[in-house]
Design a protein around this nucleic acid. Structure first.
Lengths: 354, 354
DNA sequence: GAAGGCTGTGACATCGATGACACCCGTTCT
DNA sequence: AGAACGGGTGTCATCGATGTCACAGCCTTC
């Protein structure tokens, strides 16, 4: 009679064990299982044990897709780094991931390769998964990225930089002044006795932070007034090889420099290699200061004087801010400016008192 | 009368624009919008234009969470790397990410820090998002990880290693023999004139691939029969600093070695540094061979002889296999064994013909 | 022993898409 | 002319959880 009525639409879902399966097997309702998973203490001991046993036996894995849809949010935090080629951001990422994990958030990593367009596409993809929060590197975004981050309604932290002008930071930010780093590097070289200081930088076109450090260098050179700024920055990746090439160029054009600021320790290592090849002495003929305090910096000959960014502290503070915001604490968009540490080693002369 | 009947449950969803909103505004049904987004050519030109305009005006971003739930799959590929501290896997990751992006898949990265338990937790989290495929590093998993990967029903590639015994690989795998790498490194040192060759390794306890390379070294030493194996591996991270320390220890105990195999170029760099400090000549007093061909390896003094793993090729082949499987091509679980390249540079003597 | 509070459990609508299928209507075939 | 076909669009059940609320017990309390 009712043939048209009984006709069922069929769709194949995953063949996975679902929460309903677990509920049936444990002879409770699905809500109880759900409650047990989210707040185990709210379920009676008796049922909790039974549910736990069934979950284990059936190998139930909750479907977060369904859960996130229902809850309209997820326990996922998206992190965007510009690169994983060098270990610059590794420590920060590990700290973030550790702290989020402790708070039961899952960290997802995207790599933008320093491209704002790529970053936009990554952020769009992350936001489509309704993450609980986002962590991005720097302030250099496309217009659309800025709009998405502003309107997505989740906490956003911009890290590893400092807003150059007011209004640049609409989100929480945690970082330090790259301008100040460049200034500090340069100032140290003069203080330890250099009289003519050059600057070499790489990845400059992609990474605006390199540009800020260069500006810091130039400002300090002008302030000292001993010579004109000599800088040479290229768009290539910041590798040891490029460092050799840059210092070679600079020394050819300006053989009389006695100090060089490098945008990155990898470049600085290349400088040490090339300078050694030319039989110049570091730091007596040429003092070298880098940035990043990469893993090799303390052990190369001579050990590299460098500026160490607060990698771990950036991660710690970023995560703290986000977790606070997620806990409902009202976090007003605020910039947290951290300090970098000048680590004086053998590639510059120990300073006499100023 | 019917007060209890009319009582509505209310839940607040996201305040985002939904597909239904778009459909209403464009005066079509939701399924037409959905169809337009997935197969634009299946919708009439007239409607397509109207829908496109409305989507743009309203700033509609599809909710992938809902979409993935309904479709029981997503366009997401999970990749697990052991570490991002050094650039070992960076090239592979970039290749994977690039190829998946071209095929409109979103790549998500997890970092396990060489811990099988951490890896298990990451994989569990990824699988809960019903990814389209998974790429993991190596074969060293927990029992539960193996079970999850076997039963999750999506293509899985294990990369950067080679199954040691049959049955270890139940998934597709793309990699190379680490045993063979150790053998190749050692053999080269003998071939270029060394008579007593030691081995130093780091991160050995976490990274079983280091163990395989050490085995390769030992096998080759035994085959040559000139001396007993001399190896020293520690659980610490493979850094330049550790390299200095390890070679220092080895040279103290065995001052007569004239060749050293390093599990990693970062260690090898430390060896070069320490050996230079001791005024030994490389390669004449001590020949050094590394593994990884890291960015600095070609430019340190002397340039490092090393074994270069097929980083990019691993990524390319892994992605190809997965994309084929996702396209419905039946890919039988198969191991793809790639070759590593011995790059002879200044840290060993150029070989006379064998 | 009835009233009131608290705790634990279940019923059910809902989140925002997809996919199977019905249906409309203009073409082509017999 | 009527059947068969097929492209384009709409209807509606469904994916697997969560969150709200109702309600059954049980324990206090007077």
């Amino acid at each position: 009679m009712q043939t048209t009525e009984t006709r069922k639409r069929t769709r194949r879902g995953t063949q996975r064990v679902t929460m309903t399966d677990v509920a049936t097997a444990a002879d409770v309702s699905a809500s109880t299982v759900s409650l047990y998973l989210r707040r185990p203490e709210a379920v009676s001991r008796h049922l909790a044990e039974r549910i736990a046993r069934v979950i284990d036996e059936m190998g139930y894995v909750p479907n977060l897709v369904a859960g996130s849809l229902a809850a309209a949010r997820s326990r996922t935090v998206g992190v965007i780094l510009p690169s994983i080629l060098n270990s610059f951001f590794a420590e920060t990422y590990n700290t973030l991931q550790g702290m989020f994990q402790a708070a039961h958030y899952q960290t997802l990593l995207g790599v933008s390769e320093f491209s704002p367009e790529e970053e936009e596409s990554l952020i769009r993809a992350f936001l489509a998964w309704s993450p609980a929060a986002m962590v991005v590197t720097g302030f250099h975004h496309t217009e659309r990225t800025r709009a998405m981050l502003a309107s997505c309604g989740v906490p956003v932290v911009e890290m590893w930089d400092m807003p150059g002008h007011p209004g640049e930071a609409v989100n929480i930010s945690v970082g330090f002044s790259h301008f100040e780093v460049g200034r500090m590097q340069t100032s140290h070289l003069y203080d330890q006795g250099s009289r003519k200081v050059a600057y070499i930088g790489a990845a400059a076109h992609q990474d605006l932070r390199v540009r800020s450090r260069t500006d810091g260098y130039e400002a300090e050179v002008m302030r000292r007034g001993l010579h004109d700024p000599i800088d040479f920055t290229v768009p290539d990746a910041a590798t040891t090889e490029v460092g050799r090439w840059l210092i070679d160029e600079i020394l050819t054009r300006h053989p009389d420099i006695d100090g060089v600021v490098c945008s990155n320790d990898a470049l600085a290592l290349g400088v040490l290699f090339e300078v050694t090849r030319r039989d110049l002495k570091v730091p007596d003929d040429l003092a070298v200061v880098g940035f990043g305090d990469l893993p090799f910096s303390s052990s190369c000959p001579p050990p590299l004087t460098t500026v160490r960014p607060p990698q771990r502290e950036i991660g710690r503070l970023s995560a703290t801010q986000i977790l606070a915001a997620l806990d409902g604490v009202r976090v007003t968009p605020k910039h947290h400016n951290l300090d970098c540490e000048l680590v004086v080693r053998g590639s510059t002369r120990p300073m006499a008192k100023r």
